[in-house]
């Protein structure tokens, strides 16, 4: 039997507070957290999830690229400056990348887009770029197979992009 007790003052736990693992319902709350972690890991095709440093490094790399390439002619061949829209979209992309894969090299393109490059050795490369226009342009070399295309992007990474990344890391 359970009784509802009114919460008075500031002692109430936040909805965002993680279960303490103590209390009358210890077993089920631990299991829920464990299940959620397993489902998320499965979604990205890996049982291990790492947060923190790789993401921070990628964001720091993006800032470096933006600092260097947000002026025109940054490549000495008349390149277009990387726009703040492209920078913001690239930041959003980094935060959406599956944490189970290696973080990409971040580059600027002469058209002002920001590119992401994954290279697993000779002949195993996948790249895509964004320019702040909700469009991802991608290309990949997977041994003898070559692909390229374009996908609309809003709030989530298109499945085609995730599938190509999986292919590179399979």
């Amino acid at each position: 039997m359970s009784i509802a007790v009114p919460c008075i003052g500031f002692d109430c736990p936040s909805f965002l507070t993680m279960p303490s693992g103590e209390g009358t319902d210890q077993g089920s709350s631990k299991k829920i957290v464990s299940d959620i972690r397993r489902v998320i890991a499965k979604m990205w095709g890996s049982e291990s999830i790492t947060f923190g440093r790789p993401l921070d490094d990628a964001l720091a790399s993006l800032v470096d690229v933006y600092k260097e390439c947000s002026r025109s002619d940054w490549d000495a061949y008349g390149a277009v400056a990387v726009s703040s829209d492209a920078y913001e979209e690239a930041k959003k992309i980094i935060n959406l990348l599956p944490s189970s894969i290696q973080m990409p090299d971040i580059v600027a393109e002469p058209t002002g887009e920001i590119g992401f490059e994954w290279r697993r050795g000779r002949g195993q490369i996948f790249v895509f770029s964004v320019g702040g226009k909700h469009r991802i342009n991608y290309a990949g070399i997977f041994g003898g197979n070559k692909i390229h295309g374009s996908e609309y992007f809003e709030e989530t990474l298109p499945m085609a992009i995730i599938e190509h990344l999986r292919r590179l890391y399979s």
């Binding site: 690229v65 260097e68 390149a79 277009v80 580059v107 590119g115 490059e117 290279r119």
Partner: peptide, 25 residues
């Protein structure tokens, strides 16, 4: 292809990034 930007090559494995060969507009 002369390179003037450090974000167009990879010193770690001594390779060229694709962006070095992206044409201008």
């Amino acid at each position: 292809r002369y390179i003037f930007s450090k974000n167009q090559y990879r010193p770690s494995d001594h390779t060229v990034k694709y962006s070095a060969f992206m044409p201008p507009i």
